[in-house]
Amino acid sequence: MLHFVDLCEIAVRSGDGGPGKVSFRREKYVPKGGPDGGDGGKGGDVVFVVDSNLNTLRDFTYRKLYHARSGDPGGKALRSGLGGTDLRIKVPPGNIVRDRATEDIICDLAAEGEEFIACRGGIGGRGNNHFKSPTNQTPRYADAGRPGTEMELILELKLVADIGLVGYPNAGKSTFLAAISDAKPKIASYPFTTLTPNLGVVHSTKHKSFTVADIPGIIEGAHKGKGLGFQFLRHIQRVRVLCFILDVSDKNYERHFASLKEELGAYDPTLLSRAEVVLLNKIDALTPKKLEQLKRSIDRNTLPISALEKTNIAAAAKRLWKKLEETKKASYASL
């Protein structure tokens, strides 16, 4: 089983610049040629590159030190040394790079193909050709290449998705994700079945699709770290639309909804201004009388569903797509 990893620490170092060459031109009829030492090559950079085929930082748990290649030394006859190859480190979309010492954000990589140079390679040293002068025709020294830079970094992954499923443990989020998408999350009847976020792609029509993130269950005190709250809540920050899934077979579902909003607001107040859709799940567990009472009591922005029996699932997917399109249009209009 592959484990989801969304936080890790690594060290990176760019390549050193190659040393300059001390050399003199020597030919048959030129016994005292001038200096011809070449420059050293530049050290390789450390570059982070976004790759949409990745969705976890698991690979970074096996390797902690990343070192770019150093530049080659300069050669005779003014030949420059070969530059060190850049070290290109692939990361998933939504990756934040922080300085471990200060925890300041260095870069935020969200889009496919986006790149960021974390450490630049050292400059190659100058060969002795650069040091000749009227008073010194035969310089016997050259520059050493400049050393590369080294940093200790924190890599933090925040999933990039259109829709984020939010709810208490065992509310049926994973069942809903499996019902509307091609994802196959672990599903069971006990709380905290989902311990890592799951991503699914929903194909609303032939040419239209959107991504949904199943965020593990949030409980009271999550914004303080309770129940692995920090690890869960960080993945909600990038979604466009919040989809609240409430278990209506639990008589406290209205209080759970208020609690979820409170936890989101305490963690990041901007989350309360996100577009939202509310789904009342597990209507299959209600008696016909209670179901009828429920339908009469809810407003038009709330939809009763049964993820298990796939009741109103198509309508839920359509509502999510519509809300997502409204959000996109609003963001375009504000540009």
Rank of each mutant, 00 (worst) to 15 (best):
H3K: 13
I10S: 01
V12C: 11
R13Q: 15
S23P: 07
P31A: 03
G38W: 08
G38M: 10
V49R: 13
D59A: 15
D59T: 12
Y66H: 11
L78V: 07
G84Q: 09
V91T: 08
P92A: 09
G94S: 03
R100H: 09
C107P: 00
E115V: 05
F116M: 10
R120W: 12
R120T: 12
G121P: 11
G124A: 14
G125C: 10
G127V: 11
P134F: 09
Q137C: 00
A188C: 05
A188M: 12
T193V: 14
L195C: 08
N198M: 03
K206G: 01
K208T: 11
P216C: 00
G225H: 05
Q237G: 01
Y253S: 01
L264Y: 09
Y267T: 11
T270E: 13
S273N: 13
R274E: 03
R274I: 05
R274T: 10
V278N: 07
L279Y: 04
L280C: 07
N281G: 07
K282C: 01
K289C: 01
K295E: 12
I298Q: 02
T302D: 00
P304L: 06
L308C: 04
K318F: 06
R319L: 12
L320W: 00
L320Y: 00
K322N: 10
K323F: 00
